[in-house]
Amino acid sequence: MDFAVFLQENKYIDFSSPLITGKAKQLFKHINTDAEKAKIAFEYVRDEIPHSFDIKAKIITSKASDVLKYKTGICHAKANLLAALLRTQGIPTGMCFQHITLAEDDSLGYCVHCYNAIYVNSYWIKVDARGNTNGKNAQFSFNKPLLAFTNRQNYDEFFWPGIYASPHKDTMEMLDNAICLQDVIDNIPDYVNEMPDIAE
């Protein structure tokens, strides 16, 4: 398997930024194994970078360095930061997508939710750094993925299969154009058109 695409830098996973490299050095000091690095980075992004909706953020972020700079982002932006931190260490990291309701019910429609896949110990694990607020309990697990959202049968909720090397293009464009959280609510995409880099 060619992991190179899961280690590449792009506009949104800008891991050569001094902000990203500096935080990576701080987080991974004296840490040797990829598994330990993955867990530390995941818990940092999950716990120390609040989800924009949770704190009613006044600024909208998309690229990893801005998420770190402003200490906030929605799930897609936080996933970019986690990928950037781990790619500095040569740890292949990708994105996975889920179709969920935007509100607690489907009154506001649906959106594409993003979480990460990390290649450690010779296989991919799934982690969701969205943030454990309002009863969510996403954890780092080498076994069954423990994500922020479960798919509910009474709604049109599901996982898009596969692992993607790049962020969701339509969502990134939406974030780049958004001025406030209401713009995100009004314009967040609800479908993934791209093909995954790894099929599942």
Rank of each mutant, 00 (worst) to 15 (best):
M1K: 04
F3W: 05
F3P: 00
V5Q: 07
F6N: 12
N10W: 08
N10I: 09
K11D: 15
K23H: 07
K25N: 11
H30K: 12
D34W: 05
D34V: 02
K39I: 08
Y44I: 00
D47H: 13
E48R: 01
P50G: 10
F53T: 05
K58M: 03
T61L: 13
S62V: 12
K63T: 04
A64V: 06
A64L: 09
D66K: 06
I74F: 00
C75M: 11
C75P: 03
H76K: 02
A77Q: 08
L82S: 02
L82D: 03
A83W: 04
A83K: 01
A83Y: 03
L85S: 10
L86C: 14
Q89T: 04
P92R: 02
M95G: 12
M95H: 15
Q98H: 08
I100C: 12
T101S: 07
E104Y: 09
D105R: 07
D106Q: 14
G109Y: 08
Y110G: 12
V112W: 03
Y119M: 01
S122V: 04
Y123F: 10
W124H: 09
I125R: 05
K126I: 00
N132C: 07
N132T: 09
N132L: 09
N134C: 10
N134A: 12
S141F: 12
S141M: 14
F142S: 10
K144S: 10
L146A: 04
L147W: 03
A148W: 02
A148M: 08
R152Y: 08
N154D: 15
E157M: 09
F158T: 01
F159T: 12
W160P: 08
P161D: 15
G162A: 09
I163H: 00
I163K: 00
S166P: 00
P167S: 13
D170E: 14
T171V: 04
T171A: 11
D176A: 07
I179W: 09
Q182G: 04
D183E: 11
D186N: 15
N187L: 04
N187M: 04
I188P: 00
D190E: 12
N193T: 13
I198T: 06
